[in-house]
């Protein structure tokens, strides 16, 4: 397991080259100043979810998966390792994004062009933002990883968009169905926010596990 985590890290860290770091810092600063410090968490999770595709991209380019097999790493461990490393990377980048967003907001405020209302660092709200960002990562990985494991990156990158299109359509239909009751539903969510978050978190963790099982099955007979 350590082997696959290390190798995935070696691939993921390519996103941490100066070129990319500067890009993320500038983009992160812009978002933090314009949309508030907490937006840094969402910026961070985007970096994390992008990084998760790197082992698939480079794995396919250079057939690294074949190397993993010749190292004595079982296909099951490759899948397990990638689910762990993807989530780990997303959690770390979310937290880094959150802290960075706050620092940028403070800096902007000191320089006189920040929006004090956006520089909120309420622990509860920060936790909520970080949690929703991580839940987004879990949902994204649950959908995309089986596609990448089953189809490979080249074909999978297009197929991975399809579930999101379906979610958007379903969301639209759902909103239409809720109709006038929308405000009441929103009100219910706000008043029971933490319970709902708890239930959603449990469902997403279960979803992640099911997704892992599907990926392991798809990858078990994969030839490179």
């Amino acid at each position: 397991m350590k082997k696959i985590l290390w190798l995935d890290w070696m691939v993921n860290k390519m996103l941490l080259s100066w070129k990319y770091i500067i890009l993320w810092l500038v983009l992160g600063a812009f978002i933090a100043v314009s949309a508030g410090s907490l937006a840094g968490a969402y910026m961070g999770v985007l970096v994390g979810t992008s990084a998760a595709t790197m082992p698939f991209l480079y794995g396919e380019k250079t057939n690294m998966n074949a190397w993993y097999v010749t190292l004595g790493i079982s296909r099951k461990d490759v899948v397990r390792g990638r689910y762990i490393s993807s989530l780990l990377f997303a959690v770390v980048t979310t937290l880094v994004g959150l802290v960075y967003g706050y620092l940028i907001s403070v800096g902007a405020d000191l320089l006189g062009f920040g929006n004090p209302e956006l520089k909120m660092i309420d622990a509860k709200v920060s936790f909520f933002c970080a949690l929703t960002a991580i839940l987004f990562a879990i949902l994204d990985f649950s959908i995309t990883l089986p596609i990448y494991f089953g189809m490979g990156y080249q074909k999978g990158q297009y197929a991975a968009i399809i579930p999101y299109i379906i979610i958007c359509i379903a969301g639209g239909v759902g909103m239409g169905f809720v109709g006038d009751k929308g405000l009441a539903v929103l009100g219910y969510i706000v008043t029971h926010l933490w319970w709902i978050m708890l239930v959603v978190s449990i469902i997403f963790v279960a979803l992640y596990y099911v997704s892992y099982l599907v990926s392991a099955k798809l990858f078990a007979r994969k030839e490179f």
């Binding site: 070696m10 691939v11 390519m14 480079y58 380019k61 250079t62 057939n63 690294m64 074949a66 190397w67 097999v69 010749t70 190292l71 004595g72 790493i73 079982s74």
Partner: peptide, 24 residues
């Protein structure tokens, strides 16, 4: 998987990422 780790492999093209330096 245990015994296969004792094999040294040289393929047509290397499995390492092209972006890696040899130190990496």
């Amino acid at each position: 998987p245990d015994v296969v780790g004792k094999i040294g492999v040289v393929m047509d093209s290397p499995y390492y990422s092209g972006e890696w330096k040899l130190t990496e």
